[in-house]
Design a protein around this nucleic acid. Structure first.
Lengths: 346, 346
DNA sequence: CTGAAAGCGCTTACAG
DNA sequence: CTGAAAGCGCTTACAG
């Protein structure tokens, strides 16, 4: 391992001068800077981050909280995996490395202790353990934070515009002539608001058409995976066999729901129309006709990294940044021909 | 931030004594150890890793090379995502953190420079960029390495027993009465041997039955994703419409291949039998009847972490560790009734 | 523009 | 069993 002192000896300058040349700060003649840079390159010098971190208190490490209790897929989560691919890339371009924060590190060190241990400079919260009390303390821990999925007091959330998407789904069904529309949700939680916001938007839009949303048409599944969708759909459909359409808060759930519908002999969209959420490739292989919403994972990741980097630089971030979720129209929504269309003579 | 010196002041002991107590090394009376530990706990002391790393040269960081050029799914790769979930867990239990090594870090620093920069103690190679010349140098770079997918000179590979799996697939078809069996492969590369090894085992088994494997029955797709499987199957089937079965080296490819077969009006397994590889949930949602092989990602991850930790402790690892891939029999293989069975009078 | 001094928080021999 | 000294590789004021 070659150090700054080796370079000092070789070039005849002092260690601080080497440091200045390498980091491009302080006043230095262009000539000596060049000499030093050349020597560094020739010697194959690489800075030692531990030493840098110790003296500057800057580790160039971004902590990531990723637990995925909801889906239990970890890196393979349909939203989070892709989000991290992009986030990792953005952060690396800025000279930071990712570090996964963990509760089972060193006999149950907390997230914040893990951060202090590694001098983590910023935190991306993707998905923590449900109702972890430590989450509430993150906003005030002194380390810049950004969240890509949760609402946490005092931390900026970069999150899909779920409410608008919910409205969009309702409108899609309404304009296609549907009037009895079910909503298949997932656990409604204030801090992890995806399902709830989609529901709010959906309901508001329905009511904007002068219809009343019958609460019987709402069924909340108790998890985010296939089987929960199957079970939820069964309950909903047995209770309300009159629905002609259903909006489902995620594709994994939609997959289970459609499985149930198919099993009882229904066809999609002839008997019942479906809109999902996530554009989950896993599901789309099996159900390529499923209309759904695509969360813009790249955009979320990019905005999250921007906000975080800004915060690290001392510029406070906004409370929330919304990213539109794009409606992907495929073939799971039936259009009733009797619906009056604008511009036609009826 | 509270340091060892604060603890020294509070307890009346010296810094080195605090250090010994905290790390459990050196001789120390049980009494003073207890006093110090209590004080540390009360003060909420967390060690500073940068300082530790600087003085010990041990960063407690494991570098991970994960590029996924083959599938372009990164964290979402069907094998690698799950593997990393488990590997991360194992490594954390041992007090290490993951650090992703990257070529686009700090203006194109190499993997090895990235390691030196962070004092990385060990490297897990999951999937590098194809034919990256740096890979060949890893085995001799002085940092313990383990590979979960590739063969790299001087580094232990923990990898599925592809050859046995290939034989198993051939046997499955043979015993079901198939005699004209196609093989749909993916790029054969010596260092990334999955496809090639599966082929070798498959062919050897076929020949062990006294049959000759007709090279016309072999088609090598040019990538690892759906479309390549579709295209490859098309070529193979147009050339050899007499095949009654096909072994396909990965499920993603199998998905594309089955799509083609279905499109031309074939049924599976009545017209053609298929065995895939990976037990890829993505594909299995769409094709739940697909018989395939499950790579034991947890086991691979666990063995890889064990080997690496051992190497870090100075105990050299074996050259290669094989992990059985389990055959999962579902319903994509047709059994011909006319096959003579052992024990029956024919 | 350049360098001597001190410090970041910890650990490692080495004395006592 | 405990502590004084020096060092890990870098940076930050502060002189000159």
């Amino acid at each position: 391992m070659i150090t700054i002192y080796d370079l000092a000896k070789q070039t005849g300058f002092s260690a601080p001068t080497i440091s200045k040349a390498l980091n491009g700060n302080g006043k230095l003649s262009e000539e000596t800077r060049q000499i030093i840079l050349d020597a560094a390159k020739k010697a194959g010098y690489t800075a030692n981050m531990a030493a840098k971190a110790l003296s500057t208190k800057h580790s160039r490490l971004i902590g990531v909280i990723l637990e995925d209790v909801a889906m239990k897929r970890g890196f393979e989560h349909p939203l989070f995996g892709g989000l991290l691919n992009k986030f990792r890339h953005e952060i690396e371009m800025a000279g930071y490395d990712l570090l996964f924060l963990s509760k089972h590190f060193n006999d149950g060190m907390s997230y914040i202790d893990h951060c202090r241990y590694r001098d983590v400079e910023g935190i991306l919260i993707v998905n923590p353990i449900d109702d972890d009390p430590e989450m509430k303390t993150l906003g005030a821990c002194g380390i810049p934070c950004v969240s890509a999925n949760e609402f946490i007091p005092g931390v900026c959330a970069v999150i899909s515009d779920n409410e608008t998407a919910g409205r969009r789904a309702a409108r899609e069904f309404y304009e296609a002539g549907h009037r009895k529309i079910g909503f298949l949700g997932a656990p409604f939680r204030e801090n992890s608001p995806a399902a709830l916001e989609r529901y709010k938007g959906f309901k508001a839009e329905i009511e904007a058409y002068g219809l009343e949303f019958d609460e019987r048409y709402l069924e909340v599944c108790d998890a985010w995976w296939d089987q929960a969708g199957y079970d939820g759909m069964k309950k909903l459909y047995e209770r309300c066999p009159d629905i002609t359409a259903v909006f489902i808060v995620c594709d994994a759930l939609a997959f289970g729901a459609m499985k149930y519908l198919l099993e009882i002999g229904k066809t999609i969209p002839d008997d019942i129309s479906v809109i999902g959420f996530d554009d989950d490739t896993t599901v789309l292989k099996a159900a390529p006709m499923l209309s759904t919403f695509r969360q813009d994972r790249d955009r979320i990741a990019q905005l999250a990294s921007e906000v975080l980097l800004q915060e690290i630089a001392g510029i406070p971030g906004p409370e929330v940044v919304r990213v539109p979720a794009e409606y992907i129209s495929r073939a799971s929504v039936r259009r009733f021909v009797h619906v009056p269309q604008m511009g036609f003579i009826s």
